[in-house]
Design a protein around this nucleic acid. Structure first.
Lengths: 319, 319
DNA sequence: TTGAAAGCGCTAACAC
DNA sequence: GTGTTAGCGCTTTCAA
């Protein structure tokens, strides 16, 4: 039998006689033949795989409750269209360069990027290759690449307003990750909501969306104003940390202090009391990003502005 | 210039004149040339990539604090040797088949598997291809493949004994995931430690290592014996759930009840009080698994028995 | 319905 | 030092 006929059998194509098909299938079984995808993707010029790139520092990767949801959402959609999701973790410069090479190589037909950095070689490579892509969160500035995200500013504003409606007088914020769009936008939304009542002294700035930074930030706030009675924490993890600090300081929640978070992650139900927070649709973000890449792969034009998903407020017991 | 010379330049090989090198580099820049890895890996017969396969149901994937650590540990080692880690998530039969095809394709030179299932097509493919592999946790039965893990049984026994030493009289366990080796082994270790004092009625069985199952299990235990004063929870997440149930029941910890967990995950420091638990070296497991695969890639023979890592007890405030 | 042949983009061996 | 050539394992015409 010739290579051509075998290829037809393997790919379930027509124009193969039943006898030949059976003979070849038997032979495949006997020899333990497995097709080589590298060769196939070389000639087909596609790999049927989509990259999922996570660019987070160690500590954050472990702490971030959204990444898992985004990943699962993306995988669900990709899997449904029979694409293999391959996720690539970047946590060093070396990783970054290697992933850039990997993408260049035709190992993936498209890519989903979670939390890209400015000046990332990855972004340049994607633009140069014209690789179908979708960013989750904000795309790098000036980049014409499509993205799916949430409106951090409006969401932060909405939950802060809700907190104000509970009658709190001195409302502060533990602002985190101000070097990133999400962090800066959440602070902006907080400022929007407070308007004239905004007091810069009641904003504690911490580097990351983590539990420990939450403790730290809340301590600072308590030192600056012991009478503080409302807090917007930049994320649920931060809120959980703040709760811990408050407990140590002997303040009750929501009695003495009302506190709200952001993400509606698994943290929200683990704290005591449960957190009032903004729901972040992690799974949905992953799904939409995957659909966006798949759409481009099919040659459909995508909306240039990006897609923003809804972020309902979930009101529980912490405020 | 010929293809050969260009290839030499791209791969930084000797025997290229300075002038040619410069001319070619300029041309590469000008044309925006990017090498095609699929073609390279076809001729080289290797891809410089190692697969990281996670086979967990949705809910567990999000809740399991170890996976992130294992992943990061593996990536660190792989990255250091300039291998690309590509992680593949399986959460459906369809995923499983597709990953099996992916592995067959020469897209990866080796593979690390976290929590494989028996009768998984993945395992068969790996054996058939003789793909260098390492399992994290227990390998499937009868499989000669190397693995790295911990001694769940001995660790469970050790922490239970420690709990007994605090003078508790009625010690129970919230046992989870008994369909998996880790879950079954932890229960066995608990039984070992108690010896004659073991009372089957004081074991609550729940399906998963989750917070909610922890609540459930603890409730059951409380119903069966309201005077229970010591609990070994099969994981920290389970312990956190148990703590929640205890709080609702008005029991103090460690006053009325002493409780210990397993994993030493981020849960352990988020609960109130902090958990006494068994440290699971997630990062180290990932590192060793990666080293094991890399070793095979270099042609070194690996220990057939598997590697067990140490699991020190971390004693805090919950018991 | 099948076989033969070309070629995907690259590396490696060998000649020049 | 550099060009030439022969594949890597597959799909895809095109002829038979």
């Amino acid at each position: 039998m010739s290579r051509g006929t075998v290829s037809r059998v393997v790919n379930d194509e027509p124009y193969v006689s039943a006898s030949a098909r059976i003979a070849i299938e038997a032979a495949i079984e006997k020899v333990g033949y497995v097709p080589n995808n590298a060769a196939r993707s070389l000639v087909m010029q596609r790999s049927e795989a989509v990259g999922f790139i996570v660019h987070e520092p160690h500590s954050l990767f472990l702490d971030d409750p959204n990444i898992g949801g985004i990943l699962l959402g993306a995988n669900t959609v990709l899997s449904h269209s029979d694409y293999q999701m391959v996720s690539l973790v970047i946590d060093s410069q070396r990783d970054s360069d290697r992933v850039a090479r990997y993408l260049s190589g035709g190992f993936v037909d498209g890519v989903i990027i979670v939390s890209a950095r400015r000046e990332d070689p990855i972004t340049r490579v994607i633009e140069k290759l014209r690789l179908p892509a979708a960013f989750v969160g904000h795309p790098p500035e000036q980049s014409p690449l499509p993205f799916v995200g949430i409106d951090n500013r409006a969401s932060a504003r909405a939950i802060t307003e809700r907190l104000m409606q509970t009658g709190r007088k001195r409302i502060g914020m533990v602002a985190a990750a101000l070097d990133r769009d999400s962090g800066a936008d959440r602070l902006a939304g907080f400022t929007d909501a407070l308007g004239d009542r905004f007091d810069p002294a009641l904003v504690a700035r911490v580097p990351l969306y983590t539990f420990t930074d939450g403790i730290e930030g809340m301590r600072t706030l308590l030192e600056r104003d012991p009478l503080i009675d409302g807090v917007f924490a930049a994320s649920d993890a931060v809120a959980a940390g703040a709760l811990e600090a408050l407990r140590h300081a002997g303040r009750s929640v929501p009695g003495d202090v009302g506190i709200v978070g952001f993400d509606d992650s698994s943290w929200a139900l683990r704290t005591q009391p449960h957190l009032s927070t903004v729901h972040q649709p992690a799974f949905g973000l992953g799904e939409r990003a995957a659909e966006c890449v798949l759409g481009q792969l099919r040659g459909e034009e995508q909306p240039a502005d990006g897609i923003l998903l809804q972020t309902p407020i979930v009101w529980r017991d912490s405020a």
